[in-house]
């Protein structure tokens, strides 16, 4: 088939835009990694000299390390809570077509629809009215709610993919419901649960709208701290911290991929 001028233009335009789009997707990660090894004291790109000085400086910066540790702690606890509560709820909701189940499903998914700042502010106001002091616990509570929709969707999806006949078989062969759950259901949805825990962890670690209102001087978390630093000055230590985040995320993604195909799970979300 011979192609017209318009067709050739179409192909060229699509390829150029696709290449540009992919470059755009890759650029920030690449830029952050490169700039974190700068030897200079500005964010000049490309750097004129190379060094590890900002990583070394980062190790000495308690004011960044402490929020990073708080973030890890909060994300860990929020992931644990949302995966357990959300996972159990998803198992209860899956394949239940009653009205109550649909209402509950909508309720558990709503933190994803609602602009999270309104939720963060509402929690702050409630804690204020009730006289509850902000702490790691209040932060974990807010983050758990934010993480739940990911767990409900991803665990729910893996239960939907499960062949119900396997469970019927197990039950009819005399296994108890608990044994069936432990030995049949759980192993089959394990990947979904792990993938949802991975995404929940990252979304808590990265959360801004809730932390913005619930993190105070004693419970500073990393994203808010980095934001505050960047609002004041263009501190190159942020580049080193960003470099660490990118590398750790990359390793996490590769591990999760090797383990259970997280990209497929996230993509199917």
């Amino acid at each position: 088939m011979q192609s017209s001028l318009a067709d050739r233009f179409y192909d060229a335009a699509v390829h150029a835009l696709a290449a540009f789009g992919m470059l755009l997707l890759l650029a920030p990660t690449f830029v952050v990694l490169v700039i974190s090894f700068t030897g200079g004291i500005t964010l000049k790109f490309p750097p004129s000299s190379w060094s590890l000085r900002w990583y070394l400086e980062l190790l000495q910066s308690r004011e960044i390390i402490e929020p990073a540790l708080t973030s890890l702690k909060v994300a860990g606890l929020a992931t644990l809570l949302s995966t357990i509560l959300g996972g159990v709820a998803a198992i209860g909701l899956a394949r239940n077509q009653s009205k109550v189940a649909r209402v509950l499903d909508a309720l558990f998914m709503s933190p994803m629809v609602l602009p999270a700042m309104a939720f963060g502010l509402s929690l702050l106001l409630v804690f204020n009215v009730l006289g509850i002091r902000l702490s790691v616990a209040t932060l974990v509570l807010g983050h758990t709610i934010i993480c739940v929709p990911f767990v409900i969707r991803m665990v729910g999806a893996s239960i939907q993919q499960l062949n119900p006949i396997l469970i019927t078989c197990s039950l009819s062969l005399g296994a108890s419901r608990w044994y069936t759950f432990r030995r049949v259901t759980l192993p089959l949805i394990k990947r979904g649960i792990l993938a949802s825990a991975f995404v929940a962890f990252l979304s808590s670690f990265d959360n801004v709208p809730v932390s913005l209102f619930l993190a105070d001087a004693r419970t500073e978390v990393l994203p808010i701290k980095l934001w505050a630093i960047l609002e004041g000055s263009l501190d190159v230590r942020v580049a080193a911290m960003s470099g660490v985040i990118v590398i750790v995320t990359l390793i996490g993604l590769i591990c999760a991929e090797a383990f259970g195909g997280v990209t497929r799970q996230v993509g199917a979300r």
Binding site: T29, V32, V208, W227, A239, T249, L250, L253, V266
Partner: peptide
């Protein structure tokens, strides 16, 4: 997926650079 999983502060920082 990679940018989706990288922190939004990090991605924003890249744009400052």
């Amino acid at each position: 997926i990679l940018p989706l999983l990288t922190s939004s502060v990090v991605r924003t920082f890249a744009w400052i650079v």
